[in-house]
Structure formats: structure tokens, C-alpha cells
């Protein structure tokens, strides 16, 4: 749960320069991923879903700077459509992060579209070499929740 909540906080801090949240996600991920598969899964999902959101925000920043510094407007209709897209994307991201945070806090899985199954596959596959603090190395619990496939 912490992963999602912290992301939202870092996201707010990083609004003028959308890079802080990505760095925060990376740090949080690298510190906490060994705590257990469940934590690893949620951290990874949070971090992965962060990347496209940040890229989209960078795009907006870059475009806005182009306009401000060089009067390079491009097509303004396209720009306004992009602003709306950024707003919607961020809203969706925040809403789903909150839901995921609540689910994680309750000890449940929650799968984002694409990022969820991908993170699950990475964390719960036999090829995942990571040694978790709460597991002995031999037994891998495969009786946990499966993604909805």
C-alpha cells in the first residue's frame, strides 16, 4: 500500500518537474522488493504504471516549454487535446492507485490492465531469482491468488 500512497505524494511534489515521482518509485521499489513476493508485486506494478504517466507528463512539459520559450505553437487544437489526455491519464492513474493501495492494505491482489499480469508474471514465475526475506529458498508458494486469466 505504501508504494501507491508514496507515489501519489511524490507525484504531487514532482508536478512542476515530473521526475521526482519516478526516482521515488525506483528507490522505494529497490528497497522493498525483497520483503516478500506480495510486496514485490505491488511495488513493481506501482513503478511500472508510473512510467507511461511520467512520460506523458514530460511530453506536456516539453510542449509547454516549446510554446513559452520559442513560441513554437504547433497546432493548438492538438495541444489542447493533449492537455485533456494528460489530465485524464493522471486522474485514471490516481484513482486506480488509490484502489490498489486499499486492496494491498487489505492484503489482496489488484491487477491493473497490462501492468498487473506483467508484474505478476515477473514476480511469481519460477525464473524469478530473487531471494525473499519471508520465504525459505526451496518452497515457492504457488497457491497464492492467480491473476484473472
Amino acid at each position: 500500500m505504501g508504494a501507491y500512497l508514496m507515489m501519489i505524494a511524490a507525484f504531487a511534489v514532482g508536478l512542476p518537474l515530473p521526475v521526482v515521482n519516478l526516482i521515488a518509485a525506483l528507490i522505494y521499489y529497490s528497497i522493498n522488493r525483497k520483503k516478500g513476493r506480495f510486496v514485490h508485486f505491488h511495488c513493481l506494478q506501482s513503478f511500472l504504471s508510473q512510467i507511461p504517466t511520467t512520460l506523458v507528463n514530460w511530453g506536456l512539459l516539453f510542449w509547454a516549454l516549446q510554446i513559452y520559450l520559442f513560441d513554437n505553437y504547433g497546432e493548438t487544437t492538438l495541444f489542447f487535446a493533449y492537455i485533456v489526455l494528460v489530465i485524464v491519464a493522471n486522474l485514471i492513474y490516481i484513482i486506480f492507485s488509490v484502489i490498489a493501495a486499499v486492496k494491498a492494505w487489505k492484503g489482496n491482489f489488484y491487477y491493473f490492465l497490462f501492468f498487473g499480469p506483467y508484474a505478476y508474471k515477473r514476480v511469481y514465475s519460477r525464473s524469478n531469482p530473487l531471494q525473499y526475506d519471508n520465504e525459505d529458498n526451496k518452497a515457492t508458494p504457488f497457491n497464492l491468488n492467480k491473476p484473472p486469466y
Partner: peptide, 11 residues
């Protein structure tokens, strides 16, 4: 499962 992930991405 990878196929599902790809479908998700397309969605």
C-alpha cells in the same frame, strides 16, 4: 499468458 499481456497493452 504473454498473449494476454500483449492484448492488454493493445487495449
Amino acid at each position: 499468458m504473454l498473449g494476454k499481456i500483449q492484448k492488454d497493452l493493445i487495449k
